[in-house]
Design a protein around this nucleic acid. Sequence first.
DNA 1: CGCTACATTGAATCGAGTCAACACGCGTGG
DNA 2: CCACGCGTGTTGACTCGATTCAATGTAGCG
Lengths: 234, 234
Amino acid sequence: MKFTLPKCETCGIRDKSLFCMCKQEEVEHVSQMKTCNMYRKSQIVFHENAMPIGLYCIYEGSVKISKLNSNGREQIMRIAGPGDFLGYRSLIAHRPYTDTAVAIEDATICLVPKSEFFNVMQNNKKFYEALLQMICKDADEMETKLGNIAYKPVRGRIAEALVLLAGKNQFEKKEDKTYINLTREDLASLVGTVKETAIRTISEFKDENLIEIDKRRIRILDFDKLLYISSLYD
Amino acid sequence: MKFTLPKCETCGIRDKSLFCMCKQEEVEHVSQMKTCNMYRKSQIVFHENAMPIGLYCIYEGSVKISKLNSNGREQIMRIAGPGDFLGYRSLIAHRPYTDTAVAIEDATICLVPKSEFFNVMQNNKKFYEALLQMICKDADEMETKLGNIAYKPVRGRIAEALVLLAGKNQFEKKEDKTYINLTREDLASLVGTVKETAIRTISEFKDENLIEIDKRRIRILDFDKLLYISSLYD
DNA sequence: CGCTACATTGAATCGAGTCAACACGCGTGG
DNA sequence: CCACGCGTGTTGACTCGATTCAATGTAGCG
């Protein structure tokens, strides 16, 4: 696997990440200290119960963060893309990961050593605050998701997931069109249902011309209508 | 409503709250600045979308934190009791509350002004860190709850809720016995189901001698069995 | 005493999960 | 170049847990 090691200084998605709070010299230092890895599709980035050794920052590709329950069922918490941090909560709390992170597309992910991360955190007040805010936002999002899963029927949850996924632009693009590139199984786990039900709902949406499907990948045609379906149960 | 204004210096549940990280002089200052209010059952402490004006800290009684969706359905996020903080995430993020807090028993709740809270936060590193950890823990708990609601059947979710509620000791005690004092409706909202289903499940548990019921209040008889039922689907 | 809020029970209905069969595309190895 | 297998996607039929609707019971309070 040959590729140019991405440098934080010139990283195009840095201003989308928390490191946009950092001064030039900090960024350079982080860049020196960090390592970088490529992950193939379905390769594990980190595993539930493992101790964090640093902060993962996605450069390219997408990752699913999920929990496995004893019935072998997977609950996907979120899909992370370029610029997103992984596992920072566990890192900050000095605790083992509560989730597993797996690449769902080939991905390039940088790893900032724990000590370097804490350095920045201690020395850069703005960064610290932004981090705090991010965690608050995380928790809020999770709360919303919690309310959804409890009361929205599958149709509404899938509509919402599609809108959110398309909005975040986490997947590779093709001729300027955003395609959602998740297996039906992963989409199902993300909204808390099973593959078959997810497939049926997607077929419905296709029949209603809300989405189109190109080689399994989903593209949204009618954003507003999906948003409406999603909000029916808010 | 006459009562002695509780002082932080002598507050019995302070060491259960985050203020246990504070030095004596800090505590005294907070105590001077704070106000205190009594809330009757079903009275609103703060409302979704309102801007936080300070940090609420429960002295006595219990409070439900919930979201209302447009169908009029309520999703209870958590039940808070003595020593618990309310709405700190919104306060920290300088954003409107995302939930509504309502007293479910008569409650005494102190309010630390925003500026004073931020003072402590800025000046006491330990407090800041503990706060960060608390928010991380919150988010983790929410993640767990998310996984649960998606995959555990109602029976398991109710069993779990009962165990957690009893464990937290948030309700008034009676002859040293912990009774859970929630309406069936609230219990239902807490686990994401409807009143009738919650009632049926509770009846089952009663028939199986796992709990007893005294004037609508629930007391756990067989902790382990409930824990087992809850874990069946983890 | 009667009102109101909360609790309970039964019957009907429906959304979603399960099970099973089959289709499709892709890569590997003969 | 084709055959095979494997992972993924699709569809139908059946089942069941949970919600809904409706009726009735019970406790507490003014």
